[in-house]
């Protein structure tokens, strides 16, 4: 029996008084993988930012129910503690803050929220070793400042490493495949697949169906002008690849 993880209803949002999402609906159950595709500027990153709670976006209508709770007004950190994770399209650099210190702070903050003791250093380091292997993260990167001077591919891998460390309920991967060569893509996809369980779900935002060969989606949605205009199974991605988005834009029967 599938259990509902998140339900987005009639979501509309603005940035700088410009309407970006215009009535978006999406339902995701535990254990599912959803792919969201769509042309540049269609609102994919906006959707992920709004779900993660970025305050720059003003939610003007609709609701987001996450694990039975309305979260539209919830702070980003609380959403994170409850299991929301966003692998950023453009991960930011934080000079002088080591990856390790960053993650330890993140985990401890979450523990604090749930009234759990901080994680002992030994257990933490063990976890770091395990999870970095999972995503093939270079050992040296762990002690370097967060994303500082990382190559594009290293940044993306680091996002998945963080995801592994935080073990979220809902992971949104915003164009995690862009900038990755095929080997790195396989490693990252492999990591994501290993983290998949019947308790969590993944949203894969991508331009290319290539990634979907490795992370196989249960559903594919096409986003256009802030709305999901078509949903289907994996074959929709293949069709899009062949025919382009214009095919959908022109199609009256979407």
């Amino acid at each position: 029996m599938s259990e509902l993880l998140i339900e987005i209803k009639d979501l509309e949002c603005n940035i700088d008084n410009q309407k970006i999402l215009q009535g978006l609906n999406l339902k995701i159950n535990k254990g599912e993988v959803h792919a969201i595709m769509g042309p540049n500027g269609s609102g994919k990153s906006t959707l992920s930012s709004v779900l993660a709670g970025n305050d720059n976006y003003e939610v003007t209508n609709g609701s987001i129910n996450f694990l039975g709770e309305e979260i539209s007004e919830m702070s980003p950190e609380e959403r994170s503690w409850k299991g929301m994770f966003l692998a950023f399209q453009y991960p930011v650099e934080i000079p002088g803050v080591s990856n390790i210190n960053f993650l330890r702070t993140a985990l401890n903050e979450r523990n604090k929220y749930f009234g759990i003791d901080s994680i002992p250093a030994k257990d933490f380091l063990k976890m770091v070793a395990e999870k970095s292997e999972l995503v093939g993260l270079n050992n040296k990167l762990k002690n370097r400042s967060v994303n500082e001077g990382f190559s594009g591919g290293e940044k993306k891998r680091n996002e998945i490493f963080q995801m592994a460390m935080l073990d979220p309920k809902l992971s949104i991967l915003d164009e995690t495949d862009s900038g990755l060569d095929i080997d790195a893509l396989k490693i990252v996809a492999n990591g994501v697949n290993k983290l998949k369980s019947s308790e969590n779900a993944t949203v894969v935002i991508t331009h290319y169906q290539r990634l979907l060969d490795y992370i196989v989606p249960d559903f594919v949605h096409v986003l256009h002008e802030g709305k999901i205009i078509k949903s289907g199974d994996k074959s929709l991605a293949l069709e899009l690849e062949k025919k382009g988005y214009d095919w959908l834009k022109n199609d009256e029967n979407i």
């Binding site: 950190e77 803050v97 903050e109």
Partner: peptide
Amino acid sequence: YCMQRGISEEKAISLIVNG
């Protein structure tokens, strides 16, 4: 970015500044 990872704003500021 920090807040998305569960680090509150105050803590994030101190983390960034200390870095």
